[in-house]
Design a protein around this nucleic acid. Sequence first.
RNA 1: GGAGACGUCGCAUAGUCCGGCCUAGUGCACCACCCUGCUAAGGUGGAGUCCCCAAUAGGGGACCGAGGGUUCAAAUCCCUCCGUCUCCA
Length: 422
Amino acid sequence: MIDPQLLREQPDLVKASQERRGDPVSFVDEALAAESARRAAITEFERLRSEQNAHAKLVGRASKEERPALIEQGKALAVGVKEAQARVTEAEAAFDAAVSRLGNIVHPDVPAGGEENFVTLATHGTERSFDFEPLDHVALGERIKAFDIARGAKVAGTRFYYLTGIGMRLELALMLLGLDQVLADGFTPLTTPTLVRPEIMQGTGFLGEHAAEVYHLPADDLYLTGTSEVALAGFHADEILDLDEPKRYAGWSTCYRREAGSAGRDTRGILRVHQFNKLEMFSYVKPEDAEAEHDRLRALQERMLQACELDYRVIDVAAGDLGSSAARKFDIEAWIPSQQQYRELTSTSNCTTFQSRRLATRYRTESGRTAPVATLNGTAATTRWLVAILETHQQPDGSVRVPEALRPYLGGLATIEPVEAA
RNA sequence: GGAGACGUCGCAUAGUCCGGCCUAGUGCACCACCCUGCUAAGGUGGAGUCCCCAAUAGGGGACCGAGGGUUCAAAUCCCUCCGUCUCCA
């Protein structure tokens, strides 16, 4: 959630942010009204409560004779307090709902507009073309027996797959390469829970706009996470952190997504699936260090794509295409030869203090006060990378060259040869 | 799955049976000052988190795992949930 003080003191700034996101500006005035209603309710309740507390003490000290009359008076006070308390609960729920509709304050450098209005910050490599007819990752995967999509569908349904043989090994190799890179950068590796409680899902904002994307297990009231960001953000919930040094974590987990709104899109292959693995970076830093950390995460991601010898571009995602908790987001998209277009491989978001405020993750400032920390997240590697790696490094005979950096994790394997049909 | 014990403002504990000077005590650790004078010790005071009002000082409310309930009044009584531990299966 955004800073209520900012909402109160600089509503115009919040309105401008809403405007740039393409979200209703009227939400700001509604939130403001709910905010002052909330404070009024609290003030009234506390006045009555104070009166009641003083009265209860009188009763405690009173003699037997005085007591009955005082208790009668107390009953009247109790009614008023109860009503006032109910009004506070109501006002707080209303405020919560109203303020929850406001997205994070968009960073001033974020391009205006929607999905297609991104700005390309950098490109690397060529948009590779071949002097032979390139295969897409599905055809390549069949040649080298890297995955089995038909059997995935048979067993679990569409958008499920098996990684087989070299495919399975290649995914692990990629994850291990990613892990070694983030370890070198001081990240603490974690294997995270992939089932979480409603409060955590709610607190991290994934039950808002993405609610339909999330698998729910009603028998246990647990949610399957679509990214370890959920567990990583929840890790330090309700804590006061020592942030003299930033806290950096790399969470490895399987991710589950319903892909509810994407029927018919990317139905071929493993580009868009219900289940995949991901190594996710997550940083807790002081708010003033958030932008530098964001650049750092992006640099790390670029290094990973370069290690995999992929062609890519870095885009600054436009305001209208930002998740509600992100103030700014950089996506790195790799060139997919069979599609002749760039597709997202990584994403890194600066959530400033938006996420931590609801999760009550704080640090101690110079003056000794507590203040919300800034959180940032970014992809280090996912199963989807296999698509780009296979297609980019394919050779005329249907074999695939293994990027140097991945070879140590594959026993030195330099080329993945087609498997002859049995 | 069954039975039981437990959860207190950093850590450790008192308080809960029997509701009201609990404004949650004490020890350790911590911070400031004083005393002392050098591997120490002692004294005084301070100190949690969240929120509201006032914006300097200050005043008030909430928090004893979480949420409800009973009551004039709940750490204390009742219910539900979460967690930890022990025993049984």
